[in-house]
Amino acid sequence: MSGVEPRVVESRPDRLTVEFAGEIFDVEPSQTFTVGREGDLAIDDNLFLHRQFLTIERVGGLWILSNVGSRLSATVTDSGSRVQAWLAPGARLPLVFAATTVIFSAGPTTYELTIHAAEPTFRETQTIDDESDGLSTIGEVPLTASQKLMILALAEPMLRREGTGMSELPTSAQAAQRLGWTLTRFNRKLDNVCDKLDRIGVPGLRGGVRSFATNRRVRLVEHAIAARLVTREDLPLLDEERDANGDEDA
C-alpha cells in the first residue's frame, strides 16, 4: 500500500462560488463581489449593462445578493425552479439555496450565472412527484402548443448554449421566420402569452411604449428559462413546426 496520504481539501461552511460561462469565481466573506461591465466578474463590454450591476457580500452570517444598478432587473430562482424572485434596482435578497440561478438581460443580450453555497441555509428535504397532488411549481401555467412554440423560438439561443453564459435573443421577425409563421401571427401569440403571465403576477411584461417590444421579449425569456416553461428537450419542436408548415393559422 502506498505511503502517500490522500490530499485533504478544506471544507469551508462560508464558501461561495459564482459560475459563469465555464469559469468559477471564489467569493471571500470579507469582500464585496461585484458583477457588471467592470468588477470581480466583468461579464461583457455591453453598453446596456451597468458598470456595477449586482453585488454579493456576507452580512450578519448570510450571503446577500443586491441589485446596485439603476435600470436593469434580474430573475433569481433556485435550481429546481420552485422559488422565483424579481430583483429590481435597489432590492436585496438572501442567498439561501445550495444553487441559485440569476438571469438578466441588457439590451438584446441575456445572461445567466449560478451561485453555489457550500452550506446553504435552506436544504431540500423531499421531492414532490410532478404527478402528485402536491404544490405546483411557479412555472406551471397553461400554454397552448403554439404559445409554447413562440416562447421556444425566442429562447432557443439560451437553451442551445452549454451551461451558463450569454446569448443574443432573436427579434420577433427572426423568431417568426424560424417557425415559418408570419410576423402578425407571432406578435399575436406574444401578446397573448404576455397578457396571460401578467395576469398571474409575472412582473415586467407590461409597461410604457418606449422600448417595450424589446423589453417584454427579454423578460419573457428570462421567466421562461427560470420557470422551465421551455427546456432544451423541447428544441426539436422548432424544426418539426418549420418543416410541417409555413402557413398562418388562427
Rank of each mutant, 00 (worst) to 15 (best):
V4N: 04
R7M: 07
V8W: 07
E10L: 07
R12H: 13
R12N: 13
P13H: 12
P13W: 12
D14M: 06
T17H: 00
F20R: 04
F20P: 02
E23F: 00
F25Y: 12
V27I: 04
V27P: 03
E28L: 15
P29C: 10
T32P: 03
T34V: 06
R37S: 11
R37M: 08
E38R: 15
L41V: 03
A42S: 13
D44F: 05
D45G: 03
N46M: 11
L47R: 14
L47S: 15
L49K: 10
H50R: 14
F53P: 14
T55Y: 01
T55F: 02
E57H: 09
G60H: 09
G61F: 13
W63T: 01
W63Y: 09
S66G: 00
N67W: 01
G69T: 06
R71A: 05
S73N: 07
A74W: 01
R82P: 01
R82D: 15
A88S: 12
A88V: 09
P89H: 10
R92P: 03
R92V: 01
R92G: 02
L93K: 13
L95T: 04
L95V: 06
F97P: 00
T100A: 04
T100R: 02
T100S: 10
T101C: 07
I103L: 13
I103P: 00
F104A: 11
G107Y: 13
T110K: 01
Y111E: 04
Y111G: 09
H116E: 05
F122S: 01
Q126R: 11
T127Y: 09
T127G: 03
D129L: 08
E131F: 05
D133G: 01
L135Y: 00
T137G: 14
V141H: 11
L149P: 06
M150G: 08
I151C: 07
L152S: 07
A155Q: 05
A155E: 04
P157F: 01
L159C: 06
R161F: 03
R161Q: 06
T164W: 11
G165P: 09
G165N: 08
S167N: 01
E168Y: 09
L169F: 12
P170L: 15
Q177E: 14
G180R: 10
W181A: 02
T182W: 12
T184Y: 10
R188P: 01
L190K: 12
L190Y: 06
D195T: 14
D195I: 09
D195C: 06
D198H: 11
I200K: 04
G201S: 05
V202G: 02
V202H: 05
P203N: 00
L205V: 02
R206L: 05
S211Q: 10
A213Q: 07
R216H: 02
V218Q: 06
V218E: 02
L220K: 11
E222S: 11
E222N: 10
A224F: 13
I225Y: 00
A227R: 08
T231N: 02
T231A: 02
R232K: 12
R232T: 06
D234W: 09
L235H: 04
L238P: 02
D239K: 11
D239A: 11
D239E: 13
E240Y: 15
E241V: 12
R242L: 08
D243Q: 14
G246V: 13
D247T: 15
E248I: 14
E248D: 15
